[in-house]
Computed example of a mutant assay.
Amino acid sequence: MSAFRDSLPSEGRVVIGLSAVVVAIQGYNAVVLTVRPPGANLEGLPFGPFDPLGHRTFELAMRAFVTEQTRFTLGYVEQLYTFGDKGRDAPLADMGDRGGGERSAHDRVISVGYLALAAAAVDTHAPASQWRPWTRFFPYEDWRDGRPAALSLIEVALRRWADGDAQRLGRARLLFALDGAPWNEERVLERYELLYEAGLARETSRDRGEAATALPAPLAAALGEPMLSDHRRILATAVSRLRGKLKYRPVAFELMPEAFTLSALQRAVEAIAGVPLHKQNFRRALERADLVEGLGRMDADTGGRPAELYRFRREILGARPVSGLSLPLLRD
Rank of each mutant, 00 (worst) to 15 (best):
D89E: 11
Q79D: 10
G101H: 07
P52H: 05
P46K: 06
R56N: 13
E11K: 15
L42N: 02
F47I: 11
Y114M: 11
H106I: 12
V109L: 06
V23G: 06
V23R: 09
T73M: 13
Q79H: 05
Y114T: 11
V35W: 00
G96D: 07
L74W: 05
T82Q: 04
T82L: 05
V109Q: 10
G27Q: 01
G87L: 02
D85G: 05
T70I: 08
P91V: 11
P46Q: 04
Y81H: 15
F65Q: 12
V22P: 03
G17F: 08
D107E: 05
F65M: 11
G99A: 13
G54C: 01
E59L: 15
G44T: 02
G17K: 07
R98W: 13
A40Y: 04
T57V: 07
A30V: 14
L45H: 01
V31R: 02
T57P: 02
S19M: 13
I110R: 04
R36F: 14
L80G: 10
T34H: 09
G17T: 12
A118W: 01
S111L: 15
A30G: 13
Y114A: 11
G87D: 01
A40H: 04
V77E: 00
N41G: 15
I25H: 01
N29W: 10
I16H: 05
L45V: 09
E68D: 06
L115A: 05
P49G: 06
F65K: 14
M95F: 14
V22K: 03
R56M: 15
R13I: 12
V35S: 03
A30I: 11
F50M: 03
D94P: 03
D85M: 12
A116W: 07
